[in-house]
């Protein structure tokens, strides 16, 4: 459900930027979303189509780059993908990790006419 709040923010940011540039139409919105945020791509698309009706963003393409979750071992510094049921470092067996990607949630750019 938090996709609705997130989509509303995406639309607001895109409209504000487009209006600032005197654009007639938003053609594409480029988003970067980390896996760890739990945001479901399809839901954002669904809400966006609905919310953007009668705005200059209507029919704009949502281009979402999903960022996988990667972590860094705090012991040896190796970076690796977060496994499902084992967070031990494959390099040194260390058991303390730091999240280095996967929390992203931003509008990268918009394409306008």
């Amino acid at each position: 459900m938090h996709e609705m709040a997130i989509t509303e923010n995406i639309l607001n940011i895109a409209l504000e930027k487009a209006e600032g540039a005197d654009a007639r139409r938003i053609v594409k919105v480029n988003l970067v979303i980390g896996k760890l945020t739990g945001v479901v791509e399809e839901c954002v698309g669904f809400y966006f189509d609905f919310m953007s009706r009668d705005t200059i963003a209507e029919k704009a393409v949502l281009n979402i780059t999903m960022v996988p979750t990667r972590v860094k071992c705090r012991v040896c510094g190796a970076d690796f993908a977060l496994g499902e049921y084992d967070w031990t470092c494959p390099g040194c067996g260390g058991s303390s990790i730091e999240i280095i990607s996967g929390k992203e949630l931003f509008v990268e750019s918009i394409e306008v006419e």
């Binding site: 997130i6 923010n9 995406i10 607001n12 940011i13 895109a14 930027k17 487009a18 540039a21 654009a23 988003l31 949630l105 931003f106 509008v107 990268e108 750019s109 918009i110 394409e111 306008v112 006419e113």
Partner: peptide, 14 residues
């Protein structure tokens, strides 16, 4: 025309 935005989607909440 592409416009760079680089804005946190939850920035308003923050």
């Amino acid at each position: 025309m592409e416009i760079k935005v680089l804005r946190n989607i939850l920035g308003a909440n923050e």
